[in-house]
Design a protein around this nucleic acid. Structure first.
Lengths: 347, 347
DNA sequence: GTGAAAGCGCTAACAA
DNA sequence: TTGTTAGCGCTTTCAC
């Protein structure tokens, strides 16, 4: 009795290209050519090599390949968020999903680097210096974030998710962001078209570029003569409720509010209900994000500005891949994706 | 005028060990020894090499090292969740944070593999077959999940987050889970000690092991003579509210409910309020997870069973690292972490 | 304790 | 079109 099982288990030592070549009766070079697309190899040999690959269960050794090609087949996703919100925010979750899906198409791996403070910059620097990844997808949402400066010290191609802050050293950094100003414009224009006259804004934290851009869109769109009424929240439901309460205190006659994200808008709705205001009759509310689990379940459902977060993730990858293919000369201009006003019950 | 800038920019070609050795006046072998801990090298040479490393900004080439050591310095985190919930669930977010933090300590990279259905198994198989990672941390929360079977086909060490389902081929798979049964016991015992007599349970989806274990703990702890009242939810707030409503319909006299997670508990609280029940006077409620943003902000704040999710992530890594160090003979028994009842206002 | 040398598995000139 | 050959940068016996 042999101890070999019938359904050939994965071999303990992985076969090399050498073994494949031998079995197919060709040289290692030809085997390599076939494994890498088979350009310029006679079909007949291509077939033989492929059979050998199949029979042996050959899988290329990534390290060996990287050693000679200097391509890693991996990109780093760097997220610099000090708090737990990192992933619990559906924003990241969807964007990463989009990135993951697109990366799969390019057969590139995703190395996740979570940064939790400037103490981690050393580690990131060391990693980037090691040249372990071909490119970087980074999220740096705060205007005072040092991450772009850290990354900028290396020659590694980067694409940011969201407009990075002004502290950025390189002027040609690529990024993908939705049209925050345009979205805000759509929201405010809609409220104006509804005949509202006291249109307030609950903004996000001032050190986040998306919050700044939305607030700017609000200011720019507000018709002359209408007062700008702004309260700052922190992108959480609680923060939104508190900001709404302050707003009602400052200006009881407010009849509309554009809120910089859906989470805060849900809080604002709650605050309005507690203050006895009807939505949308007394106060119309428009959010931002169209974060499904929130916007669809509020009472009333939220009219909001939709951004295609997953699509943005995919675009980040495509942009990066293009730069990897075309070299440093490739287009590094920002990509701004459109937003769309989704009408529901709140405005 | 030379075009060299003063503050030595990162060199275009990275220095090799060879260069370090030359500069330190030693052989490549000695330089290598120093870079890898310097055991058995005279202090005097260690110093010289380290200086050279510093001056040249030497960083070891990972691919070259992997090629000879057959160690990748990377582990894959595989998450098999078809829906968007993946990261939006703070559970994953914290666990990954824990994993990331611990991995950093071991100087090991995190490769993220998101699986969205059986169509992705091929890709995962190919990746694992490629031997690109030293080990795997996997999340397979559904009893009918094929992922464990897929992973089991390879010799790669695995540690699961949460008890994998029964379909698992290998009996010795390691996993880290909290004491779901014990936690349920704490919750029910507390409700009993409060003198409650009609203690219901809102369970999670039947195909998740954590939900099963919690429900089993509930049943086992319920004193003889008390009826088991169970409604199934889907771990969302809406599902919890719906389940609570059904419960009230079936058994209006219910005076306590142990809910399988905090999100559903928050929905249950809402449903109870809508049905005019006071909490905890009429109905006492205990949740599970101690998910801060939820449990602390409900009205009343939620009494709940805390599990240390980040700690579980760290334990997964430690367990895996141990197996990598000690080989296949290492202890592969499950790790069950304790839970703790956190008393707030709801029970 | 240190160095010389052999290779890890692969790709890419270059020859044939 | 195919094969030969020279490394990629590193670790690791094996002599010294």
């Amino acid at each position: 009795m042999s101890d070999q099982t019938a359904d050939s288990p994965p071999p303990d030592v992985r076969p090399t290209l050498e073994a494949v070549a031998a079995r197919a009766g060709v040289s290692r070079a030809t085997a390599s050519r076939v494994v890498n697309g088979g350009a310029g190899v006679r079909p007949h040999l291509v077939e033989r090599v492929n059979v050998a690959v199949e029979e042996l269960g050959y899988v290329p050794n990534h390290a060996a390949r990287t050693l000679v090609t200097r391509r890693n087949g991996a990109v780093a996703v760097i997220i610099d968020e000090p708090e737990f919100r990192v992933f619990s925010d559906p924003f990241f979750s969807r964007q990463i999903r989009g990135i993951s899906r697109e990366l799969v198409l390019h057969d590139v791996q995703l190395v996740l680097l979570l940064v939790e403070g400037s103490g981690d910059f050393d580690r990131v620097s060391r990693y980037l210096a090691g040249g372990h990844v071909d490119g970087v997808l980074a999220f740096s949402l705060h205007t005072d974030d040092e991450l772009p400066a850290v990354i900028g010290r290396f020659r590694v191609p980067v694409v940011y998710g969201g407009r990075p802050g002004p502290g950025d050293p390189a002027p040609d950094v690529g990024y993908v962001d939705c049209d925050n100003r345009g979205g805000a414009r759509q929201a405010v224009a809609h409220l104006v078209s509804l005949g509202r006259r006291r249109i307030a804004h609950i903004a996000g934290p001032v050190h986040q570029t998306s919050a700044l851009d939305r607030a700017e869109g609000y200011r720019a769109t507000l018709p002359d003569g209408l007062p700008a009424l702004i309260e700052e929240g922190d992108f959480t439901a609680e923060g939104g409720a508190a900001a709404m309460s302050r707003l009602l205190e400052r200006e009881p006659a407010v009849d509309a509010v554009f809120v910089a994200n859906d989470l805060m808008a849900s809080g604002a709705l709650r605050a309005l209900a507690e203050h006895g205001r009807r939505v949308p009759e007394d106060v119309a509310v428009v959010g931002f994000d169209d974060m499904a689990p929130v916007a669809e379940t509020t009472a009333p459902p939220l009219t909001t500005v939709r951004q295609d977060v997953e699509g943005m993730g995919r675009l980040m990858v495509r942009r990066l891949m293009r730069r990897l293919d075309e070299g440093p000369g490739a287009d590094a201009s920002p990509v701004i994706t459109p937003t769309e006003l989704v009408l529901r019950g709140s405005a």
